[in-house]
Design a protein around this nucleic acid. Structure first.
Lengths: 208, 208
DNA sequence: AATTCCAGAGAACAGTTGTTAACTGGATGA
DNA sequence: TCATCCAGTTAACAACTGTTCTCTGGAATT
């Protein structure tokens, strides 16, 4: 099924990826709404006009970055939530997974945290849509758990959003602690673990 | 004690406030890192160079905006948390208070949500510091409650941060629902209420 | 082998930006 | 009353921005 791309298409995709990489790097120290088209092309090493062969505008590039940063994350979220084992172990694994992801893709995480409430509407929309997908997937996984018996769909979605938001908050904290000494990251781990523990505790008494 | 300002100082403060107001309005559709100095002076109706009489840079203006947006909010947070009455009533009042604040100062709320993870370091720092103050104040209020018996200081701060973050998430949701029909805001109210309820439930079983 | 296609280059456009220096004129304080 | 101060002005600077049109050379198609 995998159709080998021609030299032409392959080169185009390569350049496109170079745009995404360069933009992501530049966005570590500014917001998308201040990212200039020429700034990006300069970083890639191509003429300004080449930009238009790939994107309509920087907002368009931003939407593509959202897909790159969040699109491939869905399997990970699903498996994390559905992991079997006692709750405490699940929480530990979830926090570890977030920490590792932040370490591996700090620029992606920073971009999402920054542009979630950023100044570019189509990008905000794209992030909102992806996060909603996450919440729906988490809800679906939660529904499978025996603890979900007696829960309404609406309440499950409410809890799912709580988990998703908590995931983002934690990721952002790890991001801030990235260059800090080891014990700061340890502190964040402990904080996030206890917060998840408290939420899970509330969950298990929801039907009282 | 209140020293009447001279005509000169008064006029200066008036212009300064005009800068803050104009910037806040412009920031509804962009981020601080893309806000131009000339753009602001144009909106105020003053020469570009006048800007330097009040601020070193737009980042400096941003820090001033953080103080305006969050500085006056501390009493409200304190009294909200310390309100007596049964937990359910407290939650309702808290959510209502957030909703009202968002309706009254939407630009302030948008600014904080946007720049909390934005591209301007000094502003991020200023917001982080203010939110930490909030968390400390909430912790102090929680400590007075009889439910806090047996809690460690660290765990109380953990819970306080959870409440503060939840407050911001809720505010942001109300902001998105500002121009939406009434039933959307009602939906957000119900969601936020149940999330707070679940957290409070976890809180009451923390020591089990 | 001849033709079409198209990613990227090049040049030019009118506007924009932050920052400097030297100024003006009304409020301030002696 | 007179000298000082200082919020805001004017003018000019080099550097930058997004977007247009035209062109080119190698890949793709016939």
């Amino acid at each position: 099924m995998s159709h080998t791309l021609g030299i032409r298409q392959a080169q185009k995709q390569k350049t496109r990826q170079a745009f995404l990489d360069a933009a992501l790097a530049l966005l570590e120290e500014q917001s998308l709404s201040s990212l200039g088209l020429r700034e990006v092309t300069r970083a890639v090493g191509v003429a300004p006009t080449a930009f238009y062969r790939h994107f309509r505008s920087t907002a368009d590039l931003g939407v593509a970055l959202v897909d790159e940063a969040l699109g491939s994350l869905h399997p990970m979220v699903r498996t994390t939530v559905s992991t079997t084992g006692d709750p405490e172990e699940r929480i530990t694994r979830a926090v570890e997974l977030i920490a590792r992801h932040v370490t591996e893709y700090p620029a992606h995480v920073r971009f999402i945290a920054r542009e979630r409430h950023g100044g570019v509407q189509p990008v905000r929309e794209a992030i909102r849509a992806q996060l909603h997908r996450f919440a729906e997937e988490v809800r679906a996984e939660l529904a499978k758990d025996e603890e979900a018996e007696g829960w309404s769909e609406d309440d499950l979605l409410m809890l799912a959003h709580l988990y998703v938001d908590q995931m983002l908050i934690t990721a952002s904290l790890f991001l801030e602690a990235l260059e800090a000494p080891e014990d700061e990251r340890e502190r964040v781990t402990r904080l996030a673990t206890r917060q998840l523990r408290l939420i899970t505790l509330g969950r298990s008494h929801w039907l009282d």
